[in-house]
Design a binder for these strands. Sequence first.
DNA 1: CTGAGATTGCCGTTGAATGGCAATCGTGTG
DNA 2: CACACGATTGCCATTCAACGGCAATCTCAG
Lengths: 263, 263
Amino acid sequence: MANSSSGESVIHRFVKIVSAFDDTHRSLTVADLARRTDLPPRTTYRLVNDLLLEGLLQRERGGQVRIGNRLWELASRSSPMSGLREAALPFMEDVQSVVQHHTTLGILDGNDVLYIERLVSDSSAVNITRLAGRLPIHGTSSGLVLVAFSPASVQEQLLSRPLTRYTDFTITDPAELRRHLAEIRQRGFAVMAGIIVPESSGIAVPVFGPDNAVVAALSVVVPRQEENVPARVQVLMTAARGISRALGWKGKLQGAVRRSQGG
Amino acid sequence: MANSSSGESVIHRFVKIVSAFDDTHRSLTVADLARRTDLPPRTTYRLVNDLLLEGLLQRERGGQVRIGNRLWELASRSSPMSGLREAALPFMEDVQSVVQHHTTLGILDGNDVLYIERLVSDSSAVNITRLAGRLPIHGTSSGLVLVAFSPASVQEQLLSRPLTRYTDFTITDPAELRRHLAEIRQRGFAVMAGIIVPESSGIAVPVFGPDNAVVAALSVVVPRQEENVPARVQVLMTAARGISRALGWKGKLQGAVRRSQGG
DNA sequence: CTGAGATTGCCGTTGAATGGCAATCGTGTG
DNA sequence: CACACGATTGCCATTCAACGGCAATCTCAG
């Protein structure tokens, strides 16, 4: 921007400002915002005013500002995600009513899994997923399922990056991760125990779009003591097929499946 | 912006661009975007590039662009709406499983009702609500409930504006609308038949926050032939109380209610 | 009343943003 | 294969929206 000391674009500053809000900072004073974003106060006040005019931010009773409804509206109205979310929701409810643990729906975005829906269960395992929250790919069963069924290039990209260790069970060795991905691809689901928090396990299965590409991962988070994998995988698989079909998926014609008819 | 022929801010142009996407235009070529927003092509290309860099837009396989996941993420992560939505969802499911018709959750935003969640029923009444969609306040039972329970100033604001007629049943007379609002406030719910589309009725009840202020309207959309109001109001009331309580509402100590204990 | 912090008005400066033009790229068409 | 048409990008002179420092004002707790 003109006379800017930092050389950032207005758009970048906009993102900086919006990013300054999070779960624990849902509303901020403009002065706080200036500090958190490291922008000159006067500039922050001016920019915030523009955003208030457009409804992208909203003023609260206390004079603080928060994310505006209009921003959410613009983002949600035509986001391809909302179709996926809406298609998945009823099936996720089914899963949750049977499994009685956290059910989540995640997509691949950049180097993370982005959770676009979750149903929480009060009395259940520790759950660090948050709506519109991100977790590292190799730290979640959802992430590994998504990568396992994505084009090879995606897998290579994951393996070429350093893998942060979160617990004793986090897989940080590329070769080992590669083996896991192959197994997931072959079995059709992922079960990972304590790879990001020691207490809980994730079980995840892929959701496919019309072109047979993975579009999301459906998963449940359960306490490690009560994984009960076989039963839960079946529930997840059933739901995932339902979601896939609702999205226009026609069913994968894989060799091993549907032999029954001829016999 | 510098050398701008229109005198708009970058922020305003950003909103213009994002607004160009809707349900039927989920992805656009940049040239289309320039036409739809009425911005000079070269300017549009540059701005779109900035947005792509920030992830606010995303490029598709075909070269078109669409709303980026990052925009949704930023909007949802700390939006006060997500708390409301998440609290309401389980209760909405309850309602929908009993009523078997469209269930919606709406809030007041500007001159409209903004729908922040909806559960659709395939074989049900016509439903023109859309997720993250808007409808005029006086055209929906949700809107009337929200206004009826809002501070008087909100009501006056609605009554001072011209009221568009959508069907023969739309209330466009301020005096009549005022009577309706009073009745809704007194009864505690709204039933409006065919005020925006002739075929369907809306039944709506208020959801309250910790400070006893309305924060949302819970509603069902049913075919006009099968309103079955009394039963449905009870279902909605029950659910709305559940949501309110989940939000920290302590229960309104109104004269008429909870007499039983003493008697 | 006083001080600390938040917010706004003022204003000279300037480079980010702008948009026209022409070249290039991509795709379909005769 | 030549040609047309539209999308996209490189170039670049122009300029005003954006910038940010400073001081005044407002707020509020102590």
